[in-house]
Design a protein around this nucleic acid. Structure first.
Lengths: 191, 191
DNA sequence: GTCTATAATATGATAGAC
DNA sequence: GTCTATCATATTATAGAC
């Protein structure tokens, strides 16, 4: 009888993501993952034959897919920079649960030197975000170099706010930081 | 004959810190630590009877001690805000090896909810840094609330730059961010 | 203070029943 | 597709020689 999927793929990935965000790659033992997902280890290997590394890869891929579907079309669209950044803030506030969850790009980051597949995915997502934000800054009348710097500054603030929110156990840092982001990309945007 | 210290305490702590910065708390197995420090596991337990948790605690304590000795006296001293922030940048550039090393406050951060001793130390160091930076901002004619926000913004940028530098394997992000920090605390400081 | 040796447990991973 | 049972290895931790 139990030939049916006990946990749907999207739910499974969401629970995996939550676990990785909480304890990181090394901290996420298969036992912990099993408990978090409700699937036994062997069932997890059925879904992810290459084990934990594949889980991390697919979770990162889903992050990339979500951004590609929900964020980048807006940032590349016809709206004003102000509206685009409002959407950016909305998406990030949702992705990071108001600062109560950490970033997978941080928590899944491999050791220095050991780049590997996850490292490539993480770097790629950072670059993709920076490019998209830079174009918004460019739209807000920044020169090419200045636009890149503004985009970088936004990502730096986003990541730092998440680290600090976790470090002092206070999501308010993240919320305060979010409100600053539109003004970084578009200083004349009536922030 | 080998009744003498093979590795001095400060060297031992430095090697431990390097390992934790690289692979995080969970990723730093005793085997890895043993190899990195040049001491066998049982020797490590002789130095740190409570094991890895104690190692992390002492490494964090040493970070706090270093800041207390090298940074906070300057920030609380009689110099101009500009000189204080120049010293801040110098210390941070050294502590994080120009962006090629991660922050222990990030890499040793315990899972959400599980605060524990390390969590307390990390939060304490964040608060201590924020307070000291806020006083510099206050000196640079910021109001009390504004000073706190500027201090927070500096720490957020610092942490985020380290995460991003690691994520895209490019320390330049960190160096660029460092140059912005004095202007955040003192916008009229001729940055 | 350091080492070799060892114990108890946890981990990543596989085999095979249903 | 999920499960129980199992394996080989790695992990934290301790005992005792030098």
């Amino acid at each position: 009888m139990p030939q049916v999927r006990k946990v749907e793929d999207d739910v499974l990935l969401a629970r995996l993501a939550h676990t990785f965000k909480d304890v990181g790659y090394e901290g996420a033992s298969l036992s912990a993952i099993s408990e978090a997902t409700g699937l036994k280890k062997s069932s997890l290997y059925h879904r992810f034959p290459r084990g934990k590394e594949q889980m991390a890869q697919e979770v990162l891929q889903q992050v990339a897919d979500t951004l590609e579907a929900e964020l980048f079309p807006v940032l590349a669209g016809a709206e004003t920079p102000g509206r685009k950044m409002a959407a950016f803030v909305r998406v990030m506030d949702s992705v990071y649960a108001g600062g109560r969850e950490s970033c997978l790009l941080n928590m899944l980051s491999p050791p220095r030197g050991t780049q590997g597949v996850c490292g490539e995915a993480i770097a790629g997502t950072f670059h993709r975000l920076r490019t998209a934000l830079s174009q918004v800054a460019h739209q807000a009348s920044a020169g090419d170099d200045e636009a890149d710097l503004r985009a970088e500054e936004v990502l730096v603030a986003l990541q730092g706010a998440l680290v600090m929110a976790r470090g002092i156990a206070d999501p308010a840092v993240f919320e305060r930081t979010l409100t600053r982001l539109p003004g970084i990309i578009d200083p004349n945007g009536g922030a």
